[in-house]
């Protein structure tokens, strides 16, 4: 079903899981795009381990990007008014993850819906969680 207006959104509706690209090259290019250069935490597994990390990281803002993309893929008419993400544990580059969302509240008068958001690794462990408020056409 195409979701085009607030009336199309139902409480408990789930989106995903979707598996975004966590390749090391993607993580490092994302870091470069926002000017995070220097250090190897986003560019090299070996270098990141030398910094005491379990491996090269997917930047937290890329994790937030995965969640925004998930919302827009399923609800193209949504405008994300607010998104809040908690970086609970590192998301490691080159390791698969799944991104999902569930609708937790709807305000038809204000044309807003609330979503809970999760990024989980292959073991099903939550690495990033958060919530978003979207606004929809009437």
């Amino acid at each position: 079903m195409s979701i085009e207006r607030i009336a199309d959104i139902g409480f408990g509706m789930e989106f995903g899981p979707w598996s975004p690209d966590t390749a090391l090259g993607v993580a490092s290019e994302a870091a470069r795009s926002v000017g995070w250069v220097g250090g190897q935490r986003f560019t090299s597994h070996e270098g990141a381990r030398e910094e005491g990390l379990p491996g090269a990281l997917v930047p937290g803002i890329l994790g937030m990007g995965f969640l925004c993309a998930l919302i827009h893929r399923h609800i193209p008419a949504a405008r994300i008014e607010h998104i809040d993400t908690v970086f609970r544990a590192p998301l490691i580059a080159d390791e698969p993850c799944e991104v999902s969302a569930v609708v937790t509240d709807i305000d038809e008068d204000e044309r807003r819906a609330e979503l809970d958001l999760h990024v989980r690794n292959a073991a099903g462990e939550t690495r990033i969680f958060g919530n978003a408020t979207i606004r929809m056409p009437a």
Binding site: W18, P20, D21, V26, E29, A30, S33, V34, G35, W36, G60, I61, L62, M64, G65, F66, C68, A69, L70, H72, R73, P76, I80, I83
Partner: peptide
């Protein structure tokens, strides 16, 4: 950043789009 995120909305991935705007995660950075 939007493209790498898997974003599909043109107003975030296509700078030539008339309604092009900054991707929210970029604002977070």
């Amino acid at each position: 950043l939007a493209r790498l995120s898997g974003e599909t909305r043109p107003e975030f991935v296509d700078p030539a789009h008339p309604a092009f705007e900054v991707y929210p995660p970029f604002i977070a950075s």
